[in-house]
Design a protein around this nucleic acid. Structure first.
Lengths: 218, 218
DNA sequence: CAAAAAATCCCCTGTACTGGGGATATATTT
DNA sequence: AAATATATCCCCAGTACAGGGGATTTTTTG
């Protein structure tokens, strides 16, 4: 399917080797057209806006700033340009920052030739190219205190004993551990023991998570 | 590539016509195996757990409940089973509920033969099949988060600033301070500063108390 | 009765949290 | 222009919490 208008692509990447590889991929694809290849943020913000490419492939770590900042600024100037982050980082924080900055896709650098070409085409179709791992992380963030909601009729999560339920209820009232101890006339250590079991059974790692889970399901 | 173990699939769909179409697609694919086809939620919750299929294709509108509830319950019992929502609804709320309930993918009913087969295979590879439109919506929700949420003008909340509200909301998801820092791209110290103000305004002395107050008032 | 579950207590290590000081840079409002 | 609010960052001290070992007694249950 010959296209009248090739997809114009800009690259922002400080590593010369990698920049070369990508530009080769772009050049080797008939309907792709490389319009510029920047080495740093300053250059990108100066060169790219007047070119208004269809796609920008953006590295995160740049010598004079972060690709995330660059993305934010570029998207403000060129809202219709698709920015795809291309990075080695799998850190969740980075990913969210990039998404918030307006990135339209997120590829890991270990991606192969085919993957990159496909991702760019998908981008133009309005899809959101992400590796499976990244998509999972994004999805998980929605169910952060993890699913697996309840206790009463949840066989996989052990049922709470009466004492544990009582203590959990006190947690929801904002009591701290030593207050619970004196309230129940037991030692602080015992409260700790119960908390450990409660966390284990609810599969959480803090009193706040435990309380949220409890309140959501009662 | 012949597979020794076919992918076992269950369908939950009240519309007989559609159920028929999907089961045909599944049956026509060599390495797929249909293990059951349920018409309602009650049946699904009874039949599916002992079968422990690899994949469940789940309709949202069921005669005796919602596919979202069904997903939640199934995922509790079968955390390793991939549940793919299959629906006509493009409503953002529905999508988020489904994701929170633990759905692993989200397909629109206008999807074609190929798309369905591909989605199931991607699911097994750990990817998250979503149509482009849905992925966009999910991503967008990160860009302008929280503002839509309820607490906005709660008088008892003592006028929290947008940032404070955002952070409080992250608390309710069980995030710890440094996770909030990385998600908001600010330092831990800043998170602490915000927390101090939040506690002061809500007149509480711990994150758990803050969360409880927030959840009770929303 | 014997085994299992529940409830109690103790030690210890490392990390997270609370709350007390600050400071600075933008915005917003007056 | 001055005052106020918001958002950001820093240091520090003391406490609380999370989770890893245990152990003992009572209660429940097969």
């Amino acid at each position: 399917m010959p296209m009248l208008m090739p997809i114009s692509i800009a690259i922002v990447e400080d590593d010369a080797g990698l920049a070369g590889e990508i530009s080769e991929i772009v050049s080797d694809t008939p309907d792709f057209k490389l319009v510029c290849c920047c080495r740093n943020m300053a250059g990108a913000l100066e060169t790219i806006p007047p070119l208004a490419p269809d796609v920008v492939i953006m590295d995160i770590k740049l010598p004079d700033g972060s690709g995330i900042q660059a993305t934010e600024k570029l998207k403000r100037l060129l809202p219709d340009t698709e920015v795809m982050i291309f990075t080695i980082y799998e850190n969740t924080g980075e990913i969210f920052q990039a998404i918030k900055a307006g990135a339209n896709g997120y590829l890991l650098k270990r991606a192969g030739y085919e993957e990159i070409v496909t991702a760019i085409r998908n981008l133009m179709k309005g899809e959101v190219p992400m590796t499976g791992e990244i998509a999972r992380k994004v999805m998980q963030s929605f169910r952060k205190p993890q699913l697996s909601l309840f206790l009463q009729n949840d066989p996989s999560a052990g049922k709470l004993t009466p004492r544990e339920t009582e203590i959990l209820q006190l947690l929801t009232k904002g009591f701290q551990s030593k207050e619970i101890a004196s309230n129940c006339a037991i030692s602080l250590e015992t409260v700790n023991s119960h908390l450990k079991k409660i966390y284990e059974k609810l599969r959480v790692h803090s009193r706040t998570e435990a309380v949220v889970k409890f309140l959501k399901n009662s």
